[in-house]
């Protein structure tokens, strides 16, 4: 089992982003994904600057992957994704079929991100034919379905040619819209957004009227109000053949979380509790085949 660091899902200032990667380049993760996946308007780093940063980080020997937008609307969005896909050196995470096509055109390998809908091994095989070498399971699938998909992949003869990654820690990306819910909250038009999502480095909690953490607003993306935490299930994942557990960056404590995950999967500790690092309640329902917001994980 190895760890990966997912792309930053929030709008952070350029300096914060650079400091973040400086801080984690020597951490226990083997793979780092970076790039803007949520909103094409965000410009802390331009595509060329993401590529430059990624190439710099790649000197560390870690695998660096450029992540692309999950929703590609305007022609200019597509231009930005093309720039990343044509970087000529680094692996790309496709979060949209358009990016898959751009990679397949060049006969280059790619990682299928969590927003590509891969719900069965037949889809996995089609995409493997186009260059997929790793996939991040859609977050709403569960352990039993993953076992079935991987066993079907075995029967289709592709099991040993693909890696499987599971979104294991962080607020779950649940939905994308044309509408920006942050500007809606601030009562300003999206076309003149003034990058107000930068005021919310971990998104805007959206609670029920009884104060229950329900969703989390992050621009055009809606996330889970709770924080998925699958470390208590890591042995089951390992048994199923999961190669990578993804940790999604948050403004505080990402380093401590990586450390805790690493100690457990290396067998140095059995303490899977991360309560002190959580800014919202935990959840693990999807993995267990329940509502995503449920939580019953037992440590160990």
């Amino acid at each position: 089992m190895r760890l990966s660091l997912g792309p930053i899902l929030y709008l952070w200032p350029r300096q914060t982003i650079e400091d973040f990667y400086q801080q984690h380049i020597d951490s226990a993760v083997d793979v780092i994904y970076l790039g803007e996946t949520v909103c094409a308007k965000r410009r802390s780093l331009k595509p060329a600057e993401w590529i430059e940063l990624a190439k710099e980080l790649a000197k560390s020997g870690k695998q660096i992957v450029l992540s692309t937008l999950a929703l590609i609307e305007a022609g200019s969005d597509l231009g930005n994704v093309k720039r990343l896909c044509n970087n000529g050196e680094l692996l790309v995470e496709a979060n949209e079929m358009g990016a898959v096509q751009l990679m397949a055109d060049q006969k280059l390998p790619f990682v299928a991100g969590p927003s590509l809908n891969i719900y069965n091994a037949y889809t996995l095989k089609q995409l493997h034919n186009q260059g997929l070498i790793r996939w991040v399971m859609p977050v709403e699938l569960n352990a039993a379905t993953l076992a079935d998909i991987l066993s079907d992949a075995e029967a289709l003869g592709i099991r040993d040619q693909i890696e499987t990654e599971v979104f294991s820690y962080g607020r779950l990306p649940l939905a994308y819209s044309a509408r920006c819910f942050t500007t809606r909250f601030r009562k300003i038009p999206k076309d003149n957004c003034q990058f107000v999502c930068q005021d919310y480095p971990e998104g805007l909690p959206m609670d029920s009227q009884e104060g229950e953490a329900f969703f989390n607003i992050n621009g055009i993306q809606t996330q889970s109000g709770r924080i998925q935490h699958l470390l208590p299930h890591w042995q089951e994942m390992q048994k199923l053949g999961v190669d990578l557990m993804r940790i999604s960056p948050q403004p505080q404590h990402t380093g401590e979380i990586i450390k805790r995950y690493n100690e457990v999967i290396k067998g140095e500790s059995q303490d899977t509790d991360i309560q002190e690092y959580l800014s919202a309640p935990a959840c693990d329902g999807y993995w267990r085949g329940q509502s995503g917001m449920d939580y019953i994980a037992v440590s160990g």
Binding site: A70, L71, S115, N117, P138, V139, E140, L172, L174, A175, Y176, S177, A178, F214, F215, T222, S224, Y286, S291, G292, M293
Partner: peptide, 12 residues
């Protein structure tokens, strides 16, 4: 939300 990309219902 973008159809086919909305998991709000299964989360709840």
């Amino acid at each position: 939300m973008v159809e086919g990309r909305c998991l709000l219902s299964s989360y709840a």
